[in-house]
Structure formats: structure tokens, C-alpha cells
Design a protein around this nucleic acid. Structure first.
Length: 456
DNA sequence: CTCGATGATTCTGT
DNA sequence: ACAGAATCATCGAG
């Protein structure tokens, strides 16, 4: 266009870097033509070159051949070389070695991190699933995991196939273009640098296609991730054991069912769930309990019984321990408990222990009366399993009462509360905060504490 | 398929 | 930031 016009003008008229076209040719006319004839000749040739695109292929081919054999060809060729040398430099300088695209780098990093790009991780999904099972994760979880892995490796496979295709196509095209350029270099000046540049242009084009591939692969991975790892989509019920542990804690802290951060961590560890899951569970439990206390009555009874049984077992063990260890210090077993209860006043101790055996309004509502076990029935009239265990434990509770009366001389009045009654909520439906479980019952939630005893 | 249970999320108030 | 409340989405028994 402009460049061509300029070249035309230069060729047609003035001077060409050392080749004086006007007046005298640097290339001597082979057949004794004079200067004006040569000028005319060049004009013809240029005209033919410029109009070659307007001609049919055959015609052009013939013309091309004619030009190739033309006596002026070597001269024109060297002129074209010079022009190219001059104009080509400016083009070359413009686009050198572009820096690596940050977006491409991001995509590469992500694909690498996801195991789509780069070396194959492990030896396939089976190995991953096996590893997951071996490390103790739940089986259904590992199935999900392997499913995810399988889908991921599918994506990986497609990605690599496509990538290979692109690379192959790129190489083929590059070879084709290079051959074409070599072919053309016979008629027009093409330097190796130019070929190199052309190759890099081709590579750039193909890498932009590759980027699209990488982008869509990343999208696919993202979708897969959200499908498989979105907890809401794949809600799993907690294990029975976990629910029991949580319920035991809830019902034994009914007056203030707000586990401390430490307690949550402890529960999370015991239940093999996360702390936020524990928080969710307590959030849901509180609201649902409050909404329908009647519905949870049964459950509350059940867990109260369980808790009592466990406590009795623990106490019995403690009693045994105190008896065997040091008969002269009969209160050693309870000393330990006292420390864990974090009680420093006799008043508190009294309240606590009294409430333990009366089921009265103390916040520590762990054990109710031993009588409770015998009278606990569900609406169908069937006895709870806990009733049996409760009967067995009666003697232990008796022992406990005995020990208490001996050790501290506390009143072991067994009150008339024969049935568990929901406590903790006041008339306004607000949880009473008489004692903070996390600070009073078990500040550390460590093993051996009341909480730990009752929730295992 | 229905329906209650349940874990998670979102919105709102404090 | 946290709790309550409402709601969503899924599970699982029947």
C-alpha cells in the first residue's frame, strides 16, 4: 500500500542505494541496451509484478516463470533485498520477545495445582482413593473423592489430547509455512530472521488458542470442584456416634448450651467434624429445641439417662480408686472432681451436688434421681433401654451418695423429680445463664473431666 | 415419590 | 463477631 507506493516511486524514479537507475545502470545491460531501454524494461517488469495479483493463476504462473528467467532479475532481487533490509528493521524492533502473559501464567499455575497440567499425580484415582481410605477418612467420603478424581483425570486427559492436537497442528503449520517461505525465497528475498519471526507469530497465534483451551479447562475444573466440594450440595448426616456426643453435650449443658471455643474444638475432634460444623449443629439444635421442646423431651430423657449412667460409672470407678488407693483419705476421688469443677466455695459445691441428686434447678443437670430410670417410658409405654442400665447403676449411685455423705457430709436428699424436665429456658424462651458450663463444668474440656466422662 | 430430619447458608439484629 | 431465625438442599425412611 503506502509502502508499496513508496517503493514503486523509488524504483521508478530517483535512486536506489548505490544503484543509479536514472541515467546509467549499475547492472550493465547484457544485450547492449542503452539506459532508456533499461528504464523502460524495469518499468515493464514492475508493472507486471504489481498486476500479477489481478491475473489468473495460470497466467500468473507463466508470468512468474517469465520474470524468473528475466535478465533483470538478479538486479531487482538485490534491490528488493536492500529495501527489505531497511523496512524490515523497523518491524522487527517493534515486537521483540514479549514478556510471559500473566493470565497464562495464572492458568498454568492453577492447572498445575489441580494436577491437570504437569506430571501425573500418584498412579491414578485408585491410588488416591486407597490412600484416603487408609488415612481413616469415612468410606463414602473416599468414594466421593475418587469420583472427583476420576472426573478430574477425565478433564486432564481431554486437556492433554487437545494440547497435543494443537501442538501437532502448530508444528505442521509451521513446517508448511517454512517450506512456503523457502520456496518463495527463490523469487523474493527472505532472511532466516524473517522465517524465525514468522514462526514466532504462528506460535503466538497457537498459544492464544492454547490459552483458550486452558481457560475452558480451568472452568471445567472449577465447575467440578463446586459440584463435588460444595458441602451444601453434598450434605452428609453426621455419624450416629457424633450425633450422640453432640446431644450428650447439649443435654448436659441444657441451661447454657453454648460450648466455648475449646469445648467446640474438643467436640469437633471427638466427632471428626469441623469446629464450624459443631457451631452449626449447636445453632440448629438450640433453635429447634426451643421451637419444639415437647418433641425433644424424649431425646432429653434419653440423654439425661445416658449421662447419668456414664457419670455413675465414672464415680464408681473413682470410688473404687479412692478405696483401693488410700482408705485413710476417702475424699481423694472427689478432690479431683472438685478441681475440675473449678469450685472454690463450699456453697457452690453444695448446690452442685444437691442438684445432681435432686434434678433441681441447678444448671448442672447431669444426673437426675436414680428413680428416674425406673419410671421413664415413652409414649407407647415401652421402657427405654436406659431404664435397664439405670437399674443396674442404682447401686452405684447409692454408693456415690454414701461416699458423698461420708466425705463432705452433704445432704443427699433424693428429691421427688422422677422425670427429666427440660430446663435452661426461662419463661421468655431465653437460655438461663446461672452457670457457664465452659467455665464452671470443665474449663479445659480435657479427658477425665465431667464433660468428657459424660460424652463418651 | 413424599415428607420429616438435618446440615449448611443467608439474613438480620445486637 | 455472634446468635437467632428463616430458608435451602439433601438425606433417608416408608
Amino acid at each position: 500500500m503506502d509502502e508499496q507506493a513508496r517503493i514503486m516511486q523509488t524504483l521508478g524514479g530517483v535512486t536506489l542505494a548505490g544503484h543509479t537507475v536514472q541515467g546509467g545502470m549499475a547492472v550493465p545491460p547484457p544485450h547492449g541496451h542503452d539506459g532508456s531501454d533499461g528504464k523502460q524494461d524495469i518499468g515493464d517488469i514492475l508493472h507486471q509484478i504489481m498486476t500479477i495479483t489481478d491475473q489468473s493463476l495460470d497466467e500468473a504462473q507463466a508470468k512468474k516463470h517469465g520474470l524468473n528467467c528475466h535478465r533483470m532479475k538478479p538486479a531487482l532481487f538485490s534491490v528488493l533485498c536492500e529495501i527489505k533490509e531497511k523496512t524490515g528493521l523497523s518491524i522487527r524492533g517493534a515486537q521483540e520477545e514479549d514478556p510471559p502473559d500473566p493470565q497464562l501464567m495464572r492458568l498454568d499455575n492453577m492447572l498445575l495445582a489441580e494436577g491437570v497440567a504437569g506430571p501425573e499425580k500418584g498412579s491414578g484415582s485408585a491410588a488416591v482413593a486407597a490412600a484416603a481410605t487408609a488415612s481413616g477418612s469415612p468410606p463414602d467420603n473416599s468414594i466421593e473423592h475418587s469420583d472427583y478424581r476420576a472426573k478430574l483425570s477425565q478433564i486432564r486427559q481431554i486437556y492433554h489430547t487437545e494440547l497435543e492436537k494443537y501442538e501437532q497442528a502448530c508444528n505442521e503449520f509451521t513446517t508448511h509455512v517454512m517450506n512456503l517461505l523457502r520456496e518463495q525465497s527463490r523469487t523474493r528475498p527472505i532472511s532466516p530472521k524473517e522465517i524465525e519471526r514468522m514462526v514466532s507469530i504462528i506460535h503466538r497465534k497457537f498459544s492464544s488458542i492454547q490459552m483458550q483451551l486452558k481457560q475452558s479447562t480451568c472452568e471445567a475444573v472449577m465447575i467440578l470442584r463446586s459440584r463435588f466440594l460444595d458441602a451444601r450440595r453434598k450434605r452428609r448426616n453426621f455419624s450416629k456416634q457424633a450425633t450422640e456426643i453432640l446431644n450428650e453435650y447439649f443435654y448436659s449443658h441444657l441451661s447454657n448450651p453454648y460450648p466455648s471455643e475449646e469445648a467446640k474444638e474438643e467436640l469437633a475432634k471427638k466427632c471428626s467434624i469441623t469446629v464450624s460444623q459443631v457451631s452449626n449443629w449447636f445453632g440448629n439444635k438450640r433453635i429447634r429445641y426451643k421451637k419444639n421442646i415437647g418433641k425433644f423431651q424424649e431425646e432429653a430423657n434419653l440423654y439425661a439417662a445416658k449421662t447419668a449412667v456414664n457419670a455413675a460409672h465414672a464415680v464408681a470407678a473413682a470410688v473404687q480408686n479412692s478405696q483401693t488407693n488410700s482408705p485413710t483419705t476417702p475424699n481423694s476421688g472427689f478432690q479431683m472432681k472438685d478441681e475440675e469443677f473449678n469450685l472454690d466455695s463450699a456453697d457452690n459445691k453444695n448446690t452442685l451436688l444437691t442438684s445432681m441428686f435432686t434434678g433441681s434447678s441447678g444448671s448442672f443437670n447431669l444426673p437426675n434421681s436414680g428413680n428416674m430410670f425406673m419410671s421413664m417410658q415413652n409414649p407407647n409405654g415401652d421402657s427405654y433401654q436406659g431404664a435397664q442400665v439405670g437399674a443396674n447403676v442404682q447401686s452405684q449411685v447409692d454408693t456415690l451418695r454414701h461416699v458423698i455423705s461420708q466425705t463432705a457430709g452433704y445432704n443427699d436428699d433424693l428429691g421427688g423429680n422422677s422425670m427429666y424436665s427440660p430446663r435452661g429456658l426461662d419463661a421468655n424462651g431465653v437460655w438461663q445463664d446461672a452457670m457457664t458450663p465452659s467455665s464452671v463444668i470443665s474449663p479445659t474440656e480435657g479427658p477425665g473431666s465431667v464433660h468428657s466422662d459424660t460424652s463418651n
